[in-house]
Every structure is written in C-alpha cells, then in structure tokens.
Amino acid sequence: MVAARAHHSAEHLGEQAIWSALFSVPDPEIPAVSIVDLGIVRDVTTRQVTLTPTYTGCPATLVIEQMVRAALDEAGFGEVEIRTILSPPWTTDWISEEGKAKLLAYGIAPPVPAGSREVGCPQCGSIRTEEISRFGSTPCKAQWRCTDCLEPFDLFKCH
C-alpha cells in the first residue's frame, strides 16, 4: 500500500518534470510562447508524450518533435515515447490564457471567437482594424492593419 502510493507519487513527480521540460520548448515559429501554452501537448505520462499538429501542413511539426525529443533527453526522460495524434483536431481554444497574453505582448493579436471581426491592435489597443490578407507570415496567422496607429500586425487565426 505504502509502496503503491510511493510509486504513484513518483509517477506524478515524473509527469510534473516532463511538463516543465516541455514548458521550456518554444514554438519554433513564435518563440515567445511555449508548445504547452499553444495546447500542442495533449497528454503526458511517464511513458509517453502526446502531441498534435496545429495545421495539417505546418512545417514546424517535425521541428517541434525534434525539440521535444531533445528537451526530454536533457531532462533525463530519454525513454519517453513521442506520439502524434490528429484527433480531436487542434483548435485555438486550447491556447492558454497565459499563451494569449504572451502572444499579445509579442505583437500578435490572439485569436478572436469564430465569427467575430473585432480584433484589437496589439500596439495601441484600438479595435478600428482591418484585414489586409487572409494569410500571413505563417499558415496560422492573418495580416491585419490598425487604422488608428496604422501599424500592420499578425492575427493568430481562430481555427
């Protein structure tokens, strides 16, 4: 009984250690946020880490896997498997509040709810903004412009 509990807590500690290792892995396209903030890490056990791609054609998917592998090795979890799942599909709803705050501070407007066209300018906060292009510097972003401060900015698309 005692041994079982000890084992359980070791497992728990292991998972915590893996989570914190993953928290240090930045998104290669938006290094201001970690892959945990973005909701790419779906599940962690001491045997397996489950990831999901943001976009089907996201070129960062492979890079992320390699970075996760390196982070796990460094934290002493070289035996942990990495698994990628497609279902349920990733959604911007999984970006944490902390992640959204980091995006904004980085100059990227966080995703707005589906259907909403009210996008705040990350520079001046104005909501008088307009879409320039449906696609931006990466597949997950659109190009917008603030009509008050005139700065162009990226909007993380709702997905």
Binding site: Y55, T56, G57, S133, F135, G136, P139, Q143
Partner: peptide, 15 residues
Amino acid sequence: EVDLSLANMGLDLIG
C-alpha cells in the same frame, strides 16, 4: 498578399 495566400493554401494541401 496573394503570394502568401497561394503558398499557404498549397502548404495546407500538401499537409
């Protein structure tokens, strides 16, 4: 802008 759109759509499709 259109260049980005087309390249990104291409990327989605190749994904």
